[in-house]
Computed example of a mutant assay.
Amino acid sequence: MDLQHLRLLLVQGNEPYRYGMESGTLTAEQLTVLEGLTTWGFQLQEVGVLGCATDEIYDDILDTGVRVIGSGLPDTNEPIPRQLADFCPTHLVIDVPDPALFRWATRQQVHCIGMFRDNLREPGLRQRWDNYQLSKALNHARVDWVGGLGIEQCESLAQIGVLRNKLIPWDWPPSNRAESFEPKQLKVRPDPLQLIYVGPLFSTRGIGDLLVATAQLKAQGWNIHLKLVGQGDRQRFEIQAKRLQLDHVEFIDHVPDHSLVYLIRQADLVVMPSRHESPENSNAILNHCLQAHTPILASDHPMFAGSLSHGVNAMIFPAGNARALSQSVAYLLNHPETYAKLSAASQSSWQSLQLPVNWLSLLEHWLQGTIADQQWLQQYALSALLYQGRSASLVQA
């Protein structure tokens, strides 16, 4: 294939790269995308990013050579931006679950793939209809592949009707590797005991349960320093911590991705206390925890079942049970050999969770489009034997 005549456009909800490059606030994932597009910009006729929901209309070229386009439309529910047609793409990478975008691409005979990062919304009557329309559009023969961030997301897409032999689970290239860190040993009665939680701050995530468990440990004589990293109902939990007379609860709104694994590494224990009603999607956080070799205490949320096993690579407690959580902490503190065992298991656990396809490799093999590239992609479709065991555990959960 003559790549010099290809015009590649990434379509996503917003377009963070223009502002992010100016302010230096691009995340690790955004840098991965931008670096990939920049590399392809040297080989293709033109490479661009279209933000379907931006506050202003613009059409600029970054210093990297990537063209960035803002629609000026308030949200992604608006009609297809006219800038999409103006770009005259030959290849589209669509990160918006909007069937109209895929129908436009198939009508225009533009090669396209879905590369979704966000989960589908919770199903309601209207959402079921939207999901049906989306699956119908994605199953069209002119949509080459549908990539989903992780096996869980691909299973969600399969459940709404997307063909399993068209779905490819992918992940971001890891910024750190588990073998970069040594397994940890429990300090002799650590003072203070460092606990950390990373994720949204909502009651369904078990933050209230974690605070109660911390108070119970304090009553047993433990000096606890709890770090809650994330955004959400912060004020509510600040009030709860004050009522529980917890003096050392630190709220951190945001930690850069490249620094998060080191923050988790500093902690003695990491807690993932989500209740069952929480739409859990903590793969990225779990990866960081396993990389850091910090032992994990996790609830028995179904979405953890395929990754974490009690006494093997984590301590599992009943979701919503603060007493069981505090008892699990106390058990690890009184059994340093179990602590060391869980930490040592992190490396093999992390390796087992890594997917063979990442954002860059999926894009590369799709654009090259040779028979060998097609075979490479086919072997990593959700229907492949490679994923059957992991997919089955997710469906059962």
Rank of each mutant, 00 (worst) to 15 (best):
V271L: 12
G36M: 09
I224D: 05
A284E: 08
R164Q: 15
S346K: 00
W40Y: 11
D171C: 10
Q133A: 12
D233L: 09
P256Q: 08
P81A: 02
A100F: 05
S391I: 04
G51K: 13
V49A: 12
E35L: 08
Q378T: 13
D233S: 14
V329W: 02
T294R: 04
T25M: 00
Q388D: 14
I264W: 02
I285V: 15
G306F: 01
I69E: 01
M272F: 14
R126Q: 13
E35G: 00
V188R: 12
L210Q: 05
Q379E: 04
S71M: 03
L37W: 01
P190R: 07
D2Y: 05
G199W: 08
S393M: 09
I224Y: 07
L360G: 01
V271C: 02
A345I: 05
T25A: 01
S71Y: 03
V66M: 06
G306K: 00
W222E: 12
S175V: 12
G41V: 08
S135D: 01
H225I: 00
S307M: 04
R234S: 10
A384R: 08
T32W: 01
L325S: 08
K187N: 14
P200R: 15
V271R: 06
Q327G: 02
S278T: 13
M115W: 13
L211E: 08
Y197P: 12
P336S: 10
N131Q: 15
A298K: 02
V96H: 02
L246F: 03
G311Y: 14
Q374A: 15
A213K: 02
Q351T: 06
P81K: 02
L228C: 10
E78F: 13
P273V: 05
A241L: 08
Q327H: 09
L101M: 11
M115P: 00
S346I: 02
